[in-house]
């Protein structure tokens, strides 16, 4: 068997004249959790539904675990999916929901219920089997949805924004649970979200999509530290994108002021330069760096946020709360730690 869980080859899905997914090719390694990330309408959900078989592609080829599934319907693909709404059947109790997939695949009722009960136990849902979905909390419903998917021992497990219906506190715990389960069972998972923090937190690989195409794919660290262009730099966390010039390796000019920085290799000449808010450290006036004036200051508990007016433009700055504090109107000098010269100016 190959080590590739999902293989997309030039897959296109067109709705009328609109290409929701446009000649997308990628390979997902087995046992990895891959996030599809992007703004709404970028094609990430359509891509997921193409994997599931809920949409059939208008062109290209899809393989799951080495098997060509391009023309197969969802029922024939041996995948499982956790829906954004959970899609628990309201007229069945928890046990019936979880054993449904086993039953429609031909299992006998007693063995299906035994398996379903075991899975409920694994997910800490024992004792809830006779409840209706409407009698469960949001978090419990989410776990039932996961149990229902896992009980089928799918080759690939798909998540469509599984956390969006949970409150903020629960979200962090559930995403860690999902990650633990995925590691423990060695599942290949495709996970759709529009929340970049969630994506960074759970993924082995992140695939950022834009307008039906893959904008960049890589590990979370690669995407954050080495974004291909302004779109990704801005989408993966905040970034100040400034017009500047690369003078030499490790030396740039912003607003006409030469600065020594850490950066990846980039040819000399005018360039767009992205600077993460936490890579900027305001210091008292006179220190080496980019001079500016504090326009706005806010204290957020763990961090402080500033907007600093400089010759290169307005800078958004985040510093640890323990660092030196500045007041509005104060003149400062901004030390730039690490900058990212962007390859694609147009984005």
């Amino acid at each position: 068997m190959s080590d590739v869980a999902i293989n997309f080859e030039g897959v296109t899905k067109a709705f009328g004249n609109v290409r929701a997914v446009d000649e997308v090719s990628f390979q997902l390694p087995r046992g990895a959790l891959v996030t599809l990330l992007g703004p709404s309408g970028c094609g990430k959900t359509t891509t997921l539904r193409l994997v599931a078989g809920l949409e059939l592609p208008t062109g290209g080829r899809i393989e799951i675990e080495g098997r060509d599934v391009t023309g197969l319907s969802a029922a024939e693909r041996r995948i499982a999916m956790v829906f954004q709404s959970y899609a628990l059947f309201p007229h069945m109790n928890v046990l019936e929901n979880v054993s449904y997939g086993l039953l429609v695949n031909g299992a006998r009722k007693p063995s299906a219920e035994a398996e379903a009960n075991a899975m409920l136990k694994t997910l800490g849902l024992e004792g809830l089997g006779q409840r209706l979905p409407s009698e469960l909390s949001g978090g419990q419903q989410q776990r039932v949805a996961v149990a229902r998917a896992l009980v089928l021992r799918p080759k690939v497990l798909l998540f469509d924004e599984p956390l969006s219906n949970l409150d903020a506190r629960l979200r962090r715990r559930v995403r860690e649970d999902i990650r633990d389960l995925q590691r423990k069972l060695g599942l290949s998972v495709v996970y759709v979200t529009h929340d970049q923090q969630e994506a960074l937190a759970v993924s082995d690989l992140v695939c950022v999509m834009r307008a039906g195409k893959i904008a960049q794919m890589g590990t979370p660290v690669e995407l954050y530290d080495d974004p291909a262009d302004a779109f990704i730099a801005d989408f993966m966390g905040e970034a100040n994108v400034l017009q500047g010039e690369v003078l030499a390796p490790g030396r740039i000019a912003l607003g006409g002021i030469p600065l020594d920085v850490t950066m990846r290799p980039h040819p000399s000449g005018p360039a767009q330069i992205a600077v993460r808010p936490e890579s900027i450290l305001p210091q008292p006036e006179g220190a080496p760096g980019l001079p500016g004036r504090i326009q706005r200051a806010a204290f957020l508990g763990q961090t402080r946020e500033y907007e600093v007016e400089t010759a290169a433009g307005m800078l958004f700055v985040v510093t640890p709360a323990a660092s030196l504090a500045f007041a509005m109107g104060e003149a400062v000098s901004c030390r730039l730690d690490r900058v990212i010269p962007l390859r694609d100016v147009k984005g």
Partner: peptide, 22 residues
């Protein structure tokens, strides 16, 4: 919600099963 049909499909329920059971 249409996702109920789709959930059934992803669990291996063909159109007939989905119609009958869901």
């Amino acid at each position: 919600d249409k996702s109920l049909d789709e959930a059934s499909a992803t669990m291996g329920g063909g159109a007939f099963q989905t119609l009958r059971r869901v």
